[in-house]
Amino acid sequence: MNTAFLVGAGGAVGAMARYFFSVLVARYWHGPFPLAILLVNIIGAVAMGICIGLLARFLPPWQEQARLFLAVGVLGGFTTFSSFTLDTIVLIERGELVQAGLYVVLSVVVCLLGLYLGLLITRGGMT
């Protein structure tokens, strides 16, 4: 099966799941804290661990297709945070602690700065 199709189909499923989960949480949570996204990130991280762990443990012949559809597509569409956490854990398990720390700090700080820069640009704050 086509790689792009597997990732795209999984991504559509994950994005729709994130949307419906956020709508469900919003029915019950009315506070300013972004609880839905926090829960999506936690659920996605746990699901990524289970998915990758099971695929590595059982090594099915369709492992690569399942990884593309489930891990990259569904969970990537549900929350890219699950991919971020997987990459971080892989670096830690390889003993590359400095790289893992750098990856976490740069991902969070640079992405926050990048979003802020984008807002400044679109709001006319940078002339």
Rank of each mutant, 00 (worst) to 15 (best):
H30N: 12
L112I: 14
V108P: 02
L115A: 10
Y19K: 15
W29S: 10
F21V: 07
L97T: 11
V72F: 09
G95L: 12
C51M: 13
F33G: 02
V7F: 00
G53V: 06
V104Y: 03
G31R: 05
G11L: 04
G49M: 04
A15E: 03
A17V: 05
F69Q: 03
A9Y: 05
M16P: 01
L102G: 15
N2P: 12
I42Q: 02
Y116Q: 11
T127A: 14
T79P: 00
A56F: 08
A15M: 08
T85R: 05
R123I: 11
L112N: 09
V46Q: 07
G8K: 00
V74H: 02
L54C: 03
A4I: 09
L38D: 08
G8C: 01
L120Y: 13
V23H: 01
G44L: 05
T122A: 12
T122G: 10
L113G: 08
E93H: 15
E93R: 13
A9S: 09
N41H: 08
F33T: 04
L24D: 08
T79I: 07
V25Y: 03
P60S: 07
C111Q: 09
L24E: 15
W62H: 12
L54R: 02
G44Y: 03
L35Q: 01
Y103Q: 07
I43C: 03
I43S: 03
L117V: 15
N2V: 01
Q99C: 15
G31L: 06
A26Y: 02
A26L: 03
I42C: 03
V7S: 02
S83V: 10
M16N: 13
R123H: 15
G95C: 11
A66L: 10
Y116F: 12
H30C: 06
V108G: 00
F5N: 03
L102V: 11
L24P: 01
L55H: 00
T3D: 14
V23R: 14
E96C: 13
M48K: 08
A15G: 11
G125Y: 02
I89W: 14
S107M: 01
F78R: 00
R27A: 07
M1K: 12
C111Y: 01
G44N: 05
S22T: 13
G73M: 01
A4P: 00
A36I: 05
V90D: 11
N2A: 11
A36R: 04
G8R: 00
V13G: 06
G95Q: 14
I52H: 11
F84A: 01
F69H: 01
A100M: 11
T80K: 06
M1L: 15
L119K: 15
T3L: 05
V23I: 15
T79Y: 04
V110E: 08
A15H: 04
S107G: 13
A56W: 07
G124L: 05
V40C: 05
F21E: 08
T88D: 08
S22H: 07
V13W: 04
I89N: 04
L35W: 02
A56V: 04
L119H: 13
F58C: 03
F5L: 14
F20R: 07
A17I: 07
F5Y: 10
I37V: 12
I37Q: 12
L120F: 14
I92G: 00
T80S: 07
Y19R: 10
G49L: 09
L6R: 05
S83W: 11
D87Q: 15
A45W: 00
G124R: 10
